[in-house]
């Protein structure tokens, strides 16, 4: 028996909106510690890892570990039927082939339940080693989204370079080139507008902008994004999900020419 009640149901709506274009089908893993997901895109270039810790739910009952295979587009369709301020409850029986999403309005005058069929999904779980990163950039998520969107109008790839001067995003295409440099800015008064760069060593890596733009669908979840880089490792683009967890996108670099 699984019953997860999330007062901030809007968070789950935003999580699904940020996943559904990257991954078609995925297993949500439910255990005593939380509700999580790890899935790759179909070309095995990008991976998403989601964790919503059990403490973040108003009510969290998970009698035994369960894996719920869901089509993320269909799940997103159902969650779109919830209002942003609805309380969302996810329910499933151990042997059931369906999951129920219950939406309650904040003053309890409207209650809806949507039942969705579950799927059997063969998922390949990846072991992600703990890595020491050469550079970690924390910046406003809206700024990062804007940069990825702007650069993708000019080129297909972005070179992200971190030096002690700042973080530089560069692209080149048929019509020309573009470079955007963001300098460190502690923004004491408005921490959500800060750009903080922690650098052990300068690092420069090339990534496909198509995936970066897909990751920025998570922008409504958090004011800040963290971009962790090391030479010859996938970049990690992380958005916090309120106080309860995170959504992390991993993207393998392009091969330098």
């Amino acid at each position: 028996m699984l019953e997860l009640r999330l007062v901030q149901g809007g968070l789950l709506k935003k999580v699904l909106e940020s996943l559904k274009d990257l991954v078609n089908d995925a297993n949500f893993d439910c255990s005593a510690s939380g509700f999580s997901l790890q899935a790759m895109d179909s070309s095995h270039v990008a991976l998403v890892a989601l964790l919503l810790r059990s403490e973040g739910f108003e009510h969290y009952r998970c009698d035994r570990n369960l894996s719920l295979g869901m089509n993320l587009n269909n799940m997103a369709k159902m969650l779109k039927c919830a209002a942003n301020d609805d309380i969302v409850t996810i329910k499933a029986d151990d042997a059931s082939d369906s999951v129920t999403f219950m939406f309650e309005s904040p003053n309890q005058d409207k209650i809806a339940d949507f039942e969705m069929k579950l799927m059997d999904i063969d998922s390949e779980h990846l072991g992600i080693p703990e890595a020491e990163f050469q550079a970690i950039v924390r910046m406003p998520s809206a700024e990062f989204a804007r940069i990825c969107k702007d650069l993708s109008t000019i080129g297909d790839t972005v070179v992200i370079s971190v030096t002690k001067e700042g973080v530089k995003f560069s692209t080149r295409g048929d019509i020309g080139t573009a470079n955007i440099v963001c300098r460190q800015n502690p923004s004491i008064d408005k921490p959500e507008e800060a750009t903080i760069i922690e650098m052990e060593e300068p690092v420069s890596l090339t990534f496909a902008l198509r995936y970066m733009n897909s990751f920025t669908k998570a922008t409504p979840l958090a004011n800040q994004v963290t971009i962790s880089l090391s030479a010859d490792l996938p970049v990690v683009v992380e958005y916090r999900v309120a106080e309860m967890g995170y959504i992390r996108f991993y993207l393998a670099p392009k091969i330098e020419e």
Binding site: H44, V45, P129, T206, A252, I255
Partner: peptide
Amino acid sequence: GGGQYSLGKFFLFG
């Protein structure tokens, strides 16, 4: 231009 690494180069499939 340039090729694309896949995640399997960096992470172990378990």
